[in-house]
Structure formats: structure tokens, C-alpha cells
Computed example of a mutant assay.
Amino acid sequence: MNRLTPIGEDRLPLSGVRVMVTRARSQARELVEKIEALGGEAYEFPLLKMVPPTDTGPLDYAIGRLDSFDWVMFTSVNGVRFFLERMRQLGVSPDRMTGLVAAVGPKTAAELAKHGWTADVIPSDYVAEGMLTALQGRLTPGQRVLLPRADIARKTLPDELRRMGLQVTEVDAYETVIDGANAPEAAERLRRGEIDAIAFTSSSTVQHFTQVMAPYGLDGLLASVRIACIGPVTAETAKRLGLPVHAVAREYTVDGLLQALTANLGGDVHGTHI
């Protein structure tokens, strides 16, 4: 697509663009507010709910042995929040952590900092592959690694760490469950042409979207809708599930996603100024 060029000094980059936000309700506010600040209209269609794990036994056991790990690696803000909340419930002090800490990106690192933990490693690419690259030269076979993650997290990171000879303990810090309560309303908005773009912020939101919208005839609903993904992993999931992908963020963050929406979807959605 061509880069958007403004038609007036007072026109905002996403003026008139109606964007469906599929993030969990607890996480959607930042993206919604930034879309609106850019002149767009955000429609919240939360597809995920994050809840504590059904069985906290493995998580509790790992927390009780926290000082035995050489590394604790966090791959999401939610992983930090749920892990540290469980530590608080168990009465375990953050000071119990004596090893090194890795965070998948600056927002995850910032969440750690709120609780007094400093990330020793933050990759420049905010995905598992970027984490592995950033850790090169800092890992030693035999080191013990704790990965507190979502129950549906990808296996790329733990599998590669094990291949490198590290002892990896994976625990579910939280579970991700589908939330399709608003599917009928969302389908009707798509059918009436009231949505111009859909913003996907994770592979799980894509998977849940296709699942809950399948009964409504997904192909027909998306005929005139543009899809933006927060990064290549999410985009690949969308393509694998048969969704067209029109924009992929270069920086795998909310701001990167907004840049993709602005540069690639803004004016081209209505064909008014490209």
C-alpha cells in the first residue's frame, strides 16, 4: 500500500478509520486511547481473558525454589503480573530471586521494575527469537532456567534453550481462555461495513477470532476489512488460518502496530487520500 499523505493540517492520521481491537479487556485501553488520539474510532471486541492457572501446584513449587534458578525469563507483561501476584499471595519476597532476569521487551521490563526487579537482558526484537539472540554468549549448559508463561505460549524458547543444554522449568503463570460473548454484535458490525480494520496483537487473538466468528461466515465478513498484525508471528498465524494480512508492525509493540495502521491503512481504507 502507498504511504498516507495528509489532506489538511487538522486531519489526524486515522481520521474516519474504524478499528476493531481484539485485545483482552484488561489490556485494550492503551491501544483504544491511542487509536482515538490519532482520530480513529475504536471498537472493543475482547477475545481473551487471563485467569490464574487451574492448578497452581507447579507454579507454587517453582516459586518456593526461586533461589535455585540461574535465570528467570519473562515473555509477557501478564506473566510478570500473575507470577508476582502469586508470590505475594504465598508470602514470598521478590528478594528471594538471586539469579538473572530476562524480559522480552521494555514494557515487560517496566512491569518488573515496579516490583524492584531489574531486567538483565532485553532483546531488540520483542519475540522469543529476539530473546534467544540477546542471550547469546550469556548462557552456559547446565544452567537452570524458569519460564513463567501462559498455558498457550509458543515452545520456541524452551525448546531452543534445552537444545543448548540448559535445564528448563516451564510453569503456567496464567491461563488464557476464550471470550466470545460479543461475537454476535461484532459480526453484525462487520456485516454492515462498520469496521474498516482489525488490529491483532497476538496469535491467540487471531485463533480465537476465527473460532468465534466462523459461524457467521468469516470470508464474507472480511471482504472489505484490512487486517494489521503486531508482528510476523501473529501475521503468520493469520495467514495460516486464511486471513488476509495488509500490514505488519516493524516494531512488535502497540506503537509499532499503530504506525502500521497509520502508514498502511489510514487513508487507503476509504480510498480518499493516498
Rank of each mutant, 00 (worst) to 15 (best):
Ile7Glu: 11
Pro13Met: 01
Leu14Ala: 10
Ser15Pro: 00
Val21Met: 00
Thr22Cys: 02
Arg23Phe: 11
Ala24His: 05
Gln27Phe: 08
Arg29Asp: 08
Glu30Pro: 01
Gly40Cys: 00
Glu44Ala: 10
Pro46Met: 02
Lys49Trp: 01
Val51Asp: 03
Pro52Gly: 04
Pro53Ile: 03
Pro58Val: 01
Tyr61Asp: 06
Ala62Leu: 06
Asp67Ser: 12
Thr75Asp: 11
Asn78Gly: 14
Phe82Leu: 10
Phe83Trp: 14
Met87His: 11
Arg88Ala: 09
Gly99Glu: 08
Gly99Ser: 08
Pro106Trp: 01
Ala109Trp: 07
Ala110His: 14
Ala128Phe: 14
Met131Gln: 15
Leu132Trp: 14
Thr133Pro: 06
Ala134Val: 05
Gln136Phe: 02
Gln143Lys: 08
Val145Thr: 12
Arg154Tyr: 12
Arg154Leu: 14
Pro158Ala: 10
Asp159Lys: 09
Glu160Ser: 15
Leu161Met: 15
Glu170Asn: 15
Tyr174Arg: 15
Asp179Gln: 11
Ala181Gly: 02
Ala186Lys: 09
Ala187Trp: 04
Leu190Tyr: 08
Glu194Leu: 12
Ile195Asp: 07
Ala197Glu: 11
Thr205His: 08
Gln207Asp: 15
Met213Gln: 11
Pro215Tyr: 11
Tyr216Phe: 15
Tyr216Asn: 12
Gly220Arg: 09
Ser224Glu: 11
Ala228Trp: 09
Thr237His: 13
Leu243Thr: 04
Ala247Gly: 00
Tyr252Gly: 00
Leu257Asp: 04
Gln259Met: 01
Thr262Ser: 13
Asn264Leu: 07
Leu265Arg: 01
Gly266Arg: 05
Asp268Ala: 13
